[in-house]
Write a protein that binds this DNA or RNA. Sequence first.
DNA 1: GATGAATGAGCTTTCATTCAT
DNA 2: TATGAATGAAAGCTCATTCAT
Lengths: 220, 220, 220, 220
Amino acid sequence: MSGAHSSHSHQSSDLKSATPRWTAKQKLVLETATRLFAQKGYANTSTSEIAKKAGVSEGSIFRRFKTKEGLLLTILSPVIDGILSNMLTETNRKAAILPSLKLRDFVTIIVEDRTEFIQKHIAVFKILIEEILYDNRIRLQIIKKIPKQLLTQISQVITSLHSRHEIVDWDNEEIMRFIGNNVLGFVLNYFILLDKSTAEIQAAQEHMIEFLTKGLATSD
Amino acid sequence: MSGAHSSHSHQSSDLKSATPRWTAKQKLVLETATRLFAQKGYANTSTSEIAKKAGVSEGSIFRRFKTKEGLLLTILSPVIDGILSNMLTETNRKAAILPSLKLRDFVTIIVEDRTEFIQKHIAVFKILIEEILYDNRIRLQIIKKIPKQLLTQISQVITSLHSRHEIVDWDNEEIMRFIGNNVLGFVLNYFILLDKSTAEIQAAQEHMIEFLTKGLATSD
Amino acid sequence: MSGAHSSHSHQSSDLKSATPRWTAKQKLVLETATRLFAQKGYANTSTSEIAKKAGVSEGSIFRRFKTKEGLLLTILSPVIDGILSNMLTETNRKAAILPSLKLRDFVTIIVEDRTEFIQKHIAVFKILIEEILYDNRIRLQIIKKIPKQLLTQISQVITSLHSRHEIVDWDNEEIMRFIGNNVLGFVLNYFILLDKSTAEIQAAQEHMIEFLTKGLATSD
Amino acid sequence: MSGAHSSHSHQSSDLKSATPRWTAKQKLVLETATRLFAQKGYANTSTSEIAKKAGVSEGSIFRRFKTKEGLLLTILSPVIDGILSNMLTETNRKAAILPSLKLRDFVTIIVEDRTEFIQKHIAVFKILIEEILYDNRIRLQIIKKIPKQLLTQISQVITSLHSRHEIVDWDNEEIMRFIGNNVLGFVLNYFILLDKSTAEIQAAQEHMIEFLTKGLATSD
DNA sequence: GATGAATGAGCTTTCATTCAT
DNA sequence: TATGAATGAAAGCTCATTCAT
């Protein structure tokens, strides 16, 4: 809830501030392209369709984004950067570093935070998955970022949980992978593949929190 | 009836038996196409490249498979059918129906079995994921099959585990989803994205079994 | 005159025989492209115009020639090869090696032979000149061929003239350059730039022969 | 030496004097465009590249030169005018009208003068050649100027040489063509195509003077 | 049945030019 | 005046598909 603010500020920093300020038309292109890429896949979306639906000329797209791939990267970059670097919203961050933090609280915080993040960027995530599967350049770009960013934020909390025997003694990266797989699988299942009621989704998320909490508890 | 037979017949029907017997060249086309689709994505693979690499003429591909999509479906169908219907191999099946089966044994059996299945068809799975994300027809085709097939095989074992209070009391479909997400995530991480040693992969699989066993245990 | 035969056989060997036999449509493309490139320049001729005027689809052009540049090279290659390697027609060749050959006869033979060659391939020559001026790859391709081929044919005759003090004692390459410049300049002036009567052209050619004969005579 | 002055004044008149005085940026555009046109050809040079490399906006180019062709003509015009009209530098002019002028001196003067002129404007000459070959408007513009300008300057000297039996009795235009072809061929060969040392170029120029002197001498 | 030349629609990209700021 | 975003026409090229041989 309260996390929405800082999370939002990140996205906006990518689209508004800094040197390259987008014109209204360019923003329209980015939104339209994101929507279409997510709907039909990057490869199946033509620049001419993007131009038409965004109400701009094709020339304008290429003037600003250089190539179709440039347009793709402009869309993906901020989310790729955000996946790990901005792991927690301001509020959650404070809670996560409490020395008395229990595993269940940690899992709850991170699941809710990441679910919200993925949901918010669900369109970009669909595009990202396709590219991870088939585009080596993008795949490498992502993998390269993992080690650096794992050493911050969440990882510190996990280390703290380790020291207090609150969590199973696998290494941080592997634990993050379990959490990541389940959160991503959850979002894909419930927000893309399946058509469930809000109540069912809510229940499923609670189950996931319980599942992760038990699964990651110390074995004894 | 018995699992072994039907399981085997299914897989083999893909490439060998039944009405449509593939010629050597056609089998080459299917293998080449599978490899290329998995490498570069369906949309980024041209029929002319498939023809060239398979050593046949483009005309021959279209004569036999009608369209490029026909070729795709010929590749995907058997695996789509196999995902749930042939859940267990002969040996595992016998073990799975023991009345004394423990949750840990169940998880071990199913994780090992499905990991092997996905690994064996990893190329097709990559293609399948892309199509699930972007092709509504294929997505629906898969979703339609879920309820029917859940009533068989594994589901019965889970029901049995339920009755013996060996497993958490969520419904079978949801439990399967947890297992599925983790197995699929495991394979994607360790066989596509990451580059780990056999020992590391082995350890990761054991961790996954422990993780699932604890996560799906009765809460108390 | 009689030389036309062997000269012709060269051109035809490029368009007919060997492994790649052109289809009727492909020959039409080559002829149309040659004409248009010569008329408007390579860069100013679009593949779509070639296709339209040749009565084929654009796809067919790219299927056979790979790229627009591939089409250009297909047109240029045989002429580039022919510029120096086939310096003399059969008949002229015989005359050129007579031990009693006078400078004037030599100049006459070579001027008539090369004028005929250039005239016959005038369209390709126009294209070639443009490419020599601006395309480094083609420029190098041509320059590379000069030394090898200078050692044959004409060069031997010049060496013979040298030994009999019939010709100025500059090196063969430089002498060939004087002849080449004047023949090429003659053709460009009288067949492209200017609009003169046959009689005037005939007179100009005779003047060129006299000019070259005197200019290349031993200084004494 | 002293010729350099008047020669220089010609070039500068192109860029400085007359009604349209170029701003610093406009001069930069003209120089950049000349360089790029000569390097890659007119058709292969985009206005956007010119703008970028000259450090001005594309809009500015079109504001001043109206169209891309306008820019081309602005570059070509002064050189087209200079080819024949300003045949000789001040000093050479004085020498050329001496009543005792020998053919060899005449050839020497004109070869050195024109070689210098072409060399100085070599970039524009490259552009010009392309346009002469393919652009009818420019071709006609040049041809139209020939007769008028032939009646002046050099032509008068040739007529004088004729009357003194110093030169072969072809008409002035044809004689000029021989000289022009050889000078142009010389510059193209030694300053664009080949990569020779200064000494070799010097020797080649002397050979050309001897070649032209002998070739244009009275036949008896 | 197998081939591969031929197709035409559509793709990404470039470019000269315009015009609001 | 100078800028550079925006344009639309056209460029080179790719591709799934057809069909005569």
